[in-house]
Design a binder for these strands. Structure first.
Lengths: 324, 324
DNA sequence: CTGAAAGCGCTTACAG
DNA sequence: CTGAAAGCGCTTACAG
């Protein structure tokens, strides 16, 4: 392995000068010397050891991202957007799966901190208590969903409650459907709680809720229960697109037509929602902007007060509700 | 930040002993001393700096994984399985997206090597030429698809050609469909070339191929072209599940029934293939075993000869071909 | 069984 | 503008 010392030797300078050339500072280097160093780097095929730099400089240019399940297309889109934004600035992203276990979430945060990440992004299963761990380690914590008022973490989110209200209200007001059930996330899940509130407000308290995991299988199971009996609802609102896709499948299994027999709406706006059969009416979260906002926050030296950003959502009205 | 020196001071020992306790070696430590060290660690809430360890020990316990697109559910499943397997042994996974650009693929490999990953896993867009770069850096390279005979990389794959043959032959032999078109990947894509050969052998050379990106949109676009005209094929085999889901959507858009008007088969065996409407007949790749095999290879000190593992595939026969 | 010391590959004041 | 030297937080021969 070629090191800075090898380059310095070949260029006939000190290692400090090699560093100055590579980092364009903090001291100036004579043009001639710079040329020699550059040539030596070229000749040896030298590449700096990022680790050693990190140890000394105190920044790893690495960000951690803990999600419940990286296979969920929405989280995959978020992670992809983050990676893209970060890579452009020389950062890398370490993604961890909490697998719906609070214990694992905590462990992953710890491991990420051990690895000296510069910041931790988090989709927390519960109230984001691990955030204090991150703050304690003097690293920025950014939660990518709604947090309760007193958390010391920054957060980026859309208005989940309002968005849920909007889409459910659309079913009522524009399609005249009153009987709207909801498939929510696991009891206590931070992400779905607000969406449930928005739904409840829109249906003015009437309607069944079932709690399922945030997966296609969860949505399918929930829908099989909701739609099997005669008193089935005229519409189902699911807390995420994965569940909604499971609902579409359950309807097909039961021989029900969507949207004629039952209308379906999801939440997230993943690519697959555009191509499901039928295409899915859903709330679109601006994943790219969320990623960009996260990067912006973690780049700017933080004051003591956490940053809170609420981004706009939009509705995608498609075939699963009748397309208008 | 608490360091080993702080622990040593509080425990009244040298930093070496602290290391011996933490690493359980390589030197023995008296029980009493160990107790004192453990207590000091506890009291200070000390956590080792993984970076510093990596610099000295020469291993980062980090593995890189370069994929064309981490949002593709199959790659997401692979990455997830890898992360799971790796995490259990204290490793972390760094996922990068080559975004269908050979240049980006190369750049990502370089960046991963700069970050001193212990090994690079790769789904290569082309012939895996970057592999030599990795080998040159004296790191294990493991390609997660078929490689040509002379590569010095290890590889793990299924028999793509045979698998493609099997599923296409099933359509012919068991469903009596002769007119089977294929939607393949972009021209020259390493992953789809073998699948194309298997299809060609099964249809005995007859049938149209169109080349599209490995996405739902790609499959949709390809199918719109194939299925729009009167002389449309009776079945479409897509090079991956994403494309196949796009085909299902295109059929629905055109008012064609699947499988009555057109049968559809995919490749990969992602979770979404089980829940599409109709459910998708596909080749199932054993993602978990691929991940486990990869970890096994990178753990075992490599001989000079690359390891080649061919894992078994299976067919999932579902509604999109008539379910038998 | 334990400690003092060198060193992993960098960066950065400090002199000159 | 450049170099010698200390140090980031660890690990590991080498003595004792």
């Amino acid at each position: 392995m070629v090191t800075r010392a090898d380059v310095a030797r070949l260029a006939g300078t000190s290692t400090a000068v090699v560093t100055y050339v590579i980092n364009n500072g903090p001291r100036p280097v004579a043009t001639q010397t710079r040329e020699r160093v550059l040539r030596a780097i070229e000749e040896l095929g030298y590449r700096p050891n990022v680790l050693a730099r990190a140890l000394k400089a105190g920044t790893t240019q690495t960000v951690g991202f803990v999600v419940p399940d990286s296979r969920n297309p929405f989280f995959a889109e978020l992670a992809h957007a983050l990676e893209d934004v970060l890579f452009a600035s020389g950062y890398a992203l370490l993604v961890s799966n909490s697998a719906d276990s609070l214990e694992r979430e905590r462990e992953h945060v710890r491991v990420l901190l051990d690895r000296q990440v510069d910041a931790v992004l988090l989709i927390s299963l519960a109230g984001a208590a691990e955030v204090e761990q991150i703050i304690g380690a003097k690293k920025p914590a950014i939660v990518l969903h709604r947090v309760s008022g007193d958390s010391s973490a920054s957060s980026i989110c859309i208005d989940d409650k309002q968005a849920a209200f909007d889409i459910v209200h659309h079913l009522r007001a524009d399609h005249g459907i009153d009987d709207i059930a909801m498939i929510s996330g696991p009891p206590g899940a931070a992400v779905s709680a607000e969406r449930e509130r928005g739904w409840a407000r829109a249906v003015t308290g009437d309607g069944r809720v079932v709690h399922e995991t945030f997966s296609i299988a969860g949505g399918h199971a929930g829908a099989m229960r909701l739609l099997a009996d005669a008193g089935r609802p005229r519409a189902v609102f699911a807390a995420n697109d994965q569940q909604a896709i499971g609902v579409l499948k359950a309807a097909a299994d039961l021989g029900l037509r969507v949207p004629d027999d039952v209308a379906v709406a999801g939440f997230d706006g993943t690519v697959e929602s555009q191509f499901s059969v039928p295409s899915l009416t859903t709330v679109v979260q601006p994943s790219r902007q969320i990623a960009e906002a996260a990067f912006e926050i973690l780049r700017t030296p933080q004051a003591d007060t956490p940053v809170r950003r609420m981004l706009p959502h939009r509705l995608a009205l498609r075939d699963s509700c009748g397309r208008h």
